[in-house]
């Protein structure tokens, strides 16, 4: 439709199914053509913009001290200054970054390793592949609860270990949940994110096929050289795009550190929520400031990461 209009009154055969119908003016048609997709998308876009964008605007307003409900109408950077000079905030920022970084790095490495194993055909490889993908549809909340049941000192593993006499009492089991290092948080994230990256890498590996490696092999490349020089560059785009998602997700995730982490230092999203929940409504702007900083930092980190990753690929 648009092409024949764009071409204008061109000579030569044109397929016009209904010549008798009055044809709209070309400009109108072109406009309608260009606007059709945005128009069709507008209901859902509008919903997102109003609900999400509206909420965001209110939040940003509150973070700058504009909170008419409790009588604050003065725009100020005061809350940002408070937050940024608060040692609890800086500790949380570091904890959040550390967890997100460790989870992203570990899950990428483990996922690539597992995908390399899972692409081979072996006895039970199909069922193994299925098991590998089980964590994908499990909600993070459920995963976190599962880990609580499994690896706390009163959890299943501790009891079984005590029952078999591996440890004297369940309480001798190492503290993995509500620990300062965030072991349980990291493990739960890994359990969820490894299959996510792994499934994508596996699909990429399967579409690549064995031929490039075979060529490299006949040309004298060792197993490690084949991985570094042939396979890794081919799967890197898949690893990068999924690990960006994992990083962003881990950085902003709230339920896992809330359920499995210590109260202090906790991650930024949890810290923001504590402030938000505080009976003192005066802390609300600080919660919003934390959220805004969280968003800015995570976008900035993603930007840097993408740049670095692209540079590394080339």
């Amino acid at each position: 439709m648009t092409t024949s209009a764009d071409l204008g009154p061109s000579p030569g055969p044109q397929v016009v199914p209904a010549r008798s119908l009055p044809r709209p003016q070309p400009t109108v048609r072109r406009l309608a053509g260009h606007l059709r997709i945005p128009l069709m998308l507008s209901p859902s876009v509008l919903l997102v913009v109003v609900l999400f964008g509206g909420g965001m605007l209110v939040g940003i307003g509150q973070s700058f001290g504009y909170f008419p409900t409790i009588g604050l109408e003065e725009w100020t950077f005061e809350h940002y200054a408070n937050v940024l000079s608060d040692p609890a905030f800086l500790r949380s920022l570091w904890v959040t970054f550390r967890i997100a970084f460790i989870v992203t790095a570990l899950s990428s490495v483990i996922a690539v390793g597992l995908a390399l194993i899972l692409r081979e055909t072996f006895a039970g490889s199909r069922i193994t592949k299925f098991i590998f993908q089980i964590p994908l549809p499990v909600p993070h909340l459920v995963a976190a609860s599962g880990f609580v049941l499994l690896i706390t000192q009163s959890g299943i593993i501790a009891r079984v270990a005590a029952g078999f006499g591996l440890i004297d009492r369940p309480s001798d089991f190492p503290i993995l949940v509500f620990d300062q290092a965030g072991v349980a948080i990291t493990l739960t994230f890994l359990w969820k994110e490894v299959p996510f990256i792994g499934v994508v890498v596996l699909a990429v590996l399967q579409s690549i096929g064995p031929h490039y490696e075979e060529i490299a092999r006949t040309l004298g490349a060792t197993a490690w050289q084949r991985f570094v020089h042939v396979l890794l560059p081919l799967i890197m785009p898949g690893v990068i795009s999924t690990s960006i998602i994992v990083f962003a997700f881990t950085f902003a995730n709230y339920e896992i550190p809330l359920l499995l982490g210590v109260r202090s230092p906790t991650t930024l999203p949890v810290l923001a929520f504590y402030r938000y929940q505080d009976p003192d409504l005066g802390l609300r702007p600080e919660a919003m400031a934390i959220s805004v900083i969280l968003a800015i930092v995570s976008v900035a980190l993603l930007f840097v990461y993408r740049r670095l990753a692209r540079y590394a690929v080339q």
């Binding site: 096929g209 031929h211 490039y212 075979e214 060529i215 490299a216 092999r217 006949t218 040309l219 004298g220 490349a221 060792t222 042939v230 560059p233 081919l234």
Partner: peptide
């Protein structure tokens, strides 16, 4: 092993490494 045999294969498809 293949990598030390000196028998180099040229495939019909999947000719060149696309990343290089």
């Amino acid at each position: 092993p293949t990598e030390r045999r000196g028998a180099v294969m040229v495939f019909q498809k999947h000719l060149l490494f696309p990343t290089m």
